[in-house]
């Protein structure tokens, strides 16, 4: 009888510990949000929010803190990276899951995992020695433009390569969960592989594909170091993707801890962090909504 009591008490305790840890992880998100809000409050008190978000003028010495160039650069670099990475990863993972033989998959997957483990500073250096000159010497002249090579395009390409392992791994997992029976049902009717992929596999895995994109998107918004190294870090609104820019994470990493003599500078950078945090949160929520709708449609 006492052993039963002991087992029941253990059950309760373990339950409680796990509950506390779960709550803790949620509280962390809230704590970050509140901390950022608290720190950004001074600048929100003296400047209007629309002005802060939409003004192009960033001159901390004159107390002008327009975040628009950074927000716009963030979206451009991330958008470009996703534009390259999503079709690339989709097709690569379809190939690996549907067409490639087991032995090829077994060879390729570990290599992709190695890509995932490479520190971002190395991606940055790779961007500087390979992509930057390529953009400067070939791509920009091709479009009749002059570019230092440090540009949104370079940042987008480097970021896209960094997203590959994350996305391919998730997508493969997603495609694997589609029951073989569905593919066989389609094949048995005389469909080609591509017809199966188009009509069955992609539709069955649509919710998973959305999740994969959402996860990569969060990662892309936040990726700091490699992008910072190749993007040029200029506080002007870029006119084309061959111009240099400075996304929000780069702005924060480049300037935090410096020039703290300027009033409100610290607060402005924390507002930038808050904006970044909200952007990521916003896209996560959008992804959830789409996901819920797809699942409701009962695919």
């Amino acid at each position: 009888m006492s052993f039963l009591k002991y087992r029941l008490r253990m059950d309760k305790n373990v339950h409680l510990i796990m509950k506390i840890l779960t709550v803790f992880s949620i509280v962390t998100i809230l704590a970050i949000l509140l901390g950022l809000l608290y720190k950004a409050y001074p600048i929100l008190k003296t400047h209007s929010l629309t002005n802060l978000l939409l003004s192009k003028d960033w001159f901390p010495q004159k107390e002008l803190f327009g975040l628009f160039p950074f927000i716009s650069s963030t979206f451009q670099v991330t958008g470009l990276a996703m534009f390259i990475a999503v079709p690339f990863c989709l097709l690569a993972s379809i190939y690996l899951s549907e067409y490639a033989s087991k032995s090829i998959t077994r060879l390729v997957l570990p290599l992709i995992d190695i890509l995932a483990g490479i520190p971002s500073v190395i991606f940055g250096i790779w961007g500087i020695i390979l992509i930057v000159p390529f953009i400067r010497d070939y791509v920009a002249p091709f479009f009749g433009k002059v570019s230092s090579g440090y540009s949104i395009l370079t940042g987008g390409i480097v970021l896209a390569v960094m997203l590959i392992p994350v996305m391919v791994n998730i997508l493969l997992e997603v495609f694997n969960t589609v029951s073989r029976g569905y593919k066989e049902a389609s094949l048995a009717l005389g469909a080609t592989k591509w017809q199966c992929i188009k009509h069955v596999l992609l539709i069955k895995s649509a919710p998973g594909i959305i999740s994969a994109i959402a996860l990569s998107l969060s990662r892309a918004f936040g990726e700091t170091l490699a992008v910072l190294m190749v993007v040029g870090n200029v506080t002007k609104s870029p006119k084309s993707i061959l111009d240099p820019a400075q996304p929000l994470p780069a702005l924060i990493a480049n300037n935090y801890g410096e020039m703290m003599s300027v009033d409100l500078y610290d607060s402005a950078l924390l507002l930038a962090s808050l904006v970044l945090f909200i952007i990521v949160l916003f896209f996560n929520i959008i992804a959830r909504v789409i996901l819920r709708r797809l699942e409701k449609n009962n695919h």
């Binding site: 029976g181 049902a185 048995a188 009717l189 005389g190 080609t192 069955v200």
Partner: peptide
């Protein structure tokens, strides 16, 4: 060869489209 498997695998589309799937792909 028409195949009927162990458990039904309706394709992720409407009833109508499930039937026309085969004729359409051909």
């Amino acid at each position: 060869m028409g195949l009927l498997s162990q458990r039904p695998y309706p394709l992720p589309m409407s009833i109508y489209d499930n039937i026309t799937y085969g004729p359409k792909i051909h």
